[in-house]
């Protein structure tokens, strides 16, 4: 479902003496439907960079990033937007929402964006918020005033609302208590069972072992630093 071949990336800092910082070279991996692959490596090895490139958030310098039949490294913005609506989901570490929108609508939005009805979206949002132990009295409020852990759970609910065939998870269990962590791991298992291809970053080793089928060490893709 996700096939990456020979992807490289450098950052050019035009306002800092045009410094060129190569961050990735020859990255290749593939993930089959129903499989969950963990990206591992030290901080700064490029796990998030690789994930952001797959999502089209960072531009790839070279190589191919196939998600389904779209090459994210070359696709038009319009094609990436469609891919993100229908095929490729991303659970980031931070929730970014329009102020004042109620939590229920924030979670239901991906269902509507993918073409689901308002009723479907609401039903799915209610189910996920309840499973993730967000008290019902908060559902009609905007999540902007929620605690960090609550925001993270709303973000996860939103990420799992639509049944994306491919999912990117950036530290989905960070800052969660044991109960909610177990719920998130269940959600990941369910996504795998329905055939989603998943790439995740998990600093939580137990969580990683529980749901991931393989590990890929991204430090293998780090360019050799000229000393």
């Amino acid at each position: 479902m996700i096939r990456i071949s020979d992807v490289s990336k450098s950052f050019v800092l035009h306002n800092q003496g045009s410094a060129v910082i190569p961050v990735m070279e020859g990255a290749s991996l593939s993930v089959a439907p129903g499989e969950c692959v963990a990206l591992v490596g030290n901080s700064g090895a490029g796990k998030s960079t690789l994930m952001r490139m797959i999502y089209g958030n960072y531009l790839a310098g070279a190589g191919r990033i196939m998600v389904g039949d779209v090459d994210v490294a070359r696709a038009e913005p319009r094609e990436i937007l469609t891919l993100r609506r229908e095929v490729l989901g991303y659970v980031s570490q931070f929730l970014r929402v329009v102020p004042r929108v109620p939590t229920l609508e924030v979670v239901a939005e991906p269902v509507l964006a993918a073409g689901g009805s308002a009723a479907e979206g609401e039903a799915r949002a209610r189910e996920l918020l309840a499973r993730l132990n967000i008290p019902e009295r908060l559902w009609s409020l905007s999540p902007t005033t929620f605690s960090g852990g609550e925001q993270q759970r709303v973000n996860i609910a939103r990420g799992f609302a639509h049944g994306f065939p491919a999912l990117l998870l950036d530290e989905p269990t960070a800052s969660l208590d044991a109960t909610n962590r177990a719920v998130v791991l269940e959600l990941i298992e369910e996504a795998k069972a329905r055939g989603a291809a998943i790439i995740g970053i998990f600093h939580d080793a137990e969580a990683r072992e529980a749901v991931c089928d393989r590990e890929i060490d991204v430090s293998g893709f780090t360019p050799a630093r000229a000393a």
């Binding site: 306002n15 958030n57 990436i80």
Partner: peptide, 22 residues
């Protein structure tokens, strides 16, 4: 520069955009 909004803001390519974002 043109592109997806989040891509242009998070990974700006042109010097001017980098200055604007930073």
């Amino acid at each position: 520069e043109t592109g997806l909004t989040d891509q242009v803001l998070d990974d700006p390519q042109h010097g001017y955009t980098q200055l604007l974002v930073s």
